[in-house]
Amino acid sequence: MELVAAAAMGKFIGAGLAAIGSGAAAIGVGAVAGNFLAGALRNPSAAGSQTATLFIGLAFAEALGIFSFLVALLLMFAV
């Protein structure tokens, strides 16, 4: 029974650690958006044509955060 309790505790700790990944993804998304904004302010005429690239970059950065969120969810509810 104690082993089971330890396993449950480990699960929650693991889920919490996995949630750090969401914060890391937030840093990544912020870097993408911030650099886009910096470039867009420097050359506003070219910004409009690059919004698609911006969203692709945001999606890639965000996907990894979603993966870590998924790992947390799996630990909480599925394992």
Partner: peptide, 16 residues
Amino acid sequence: VSHSIRLAGNIMAGHA
């Protein structure tokens, strides 16, 4: 994998 999990994960995360 990332293509599909990105969509499902985003929607699931927000709703949860």
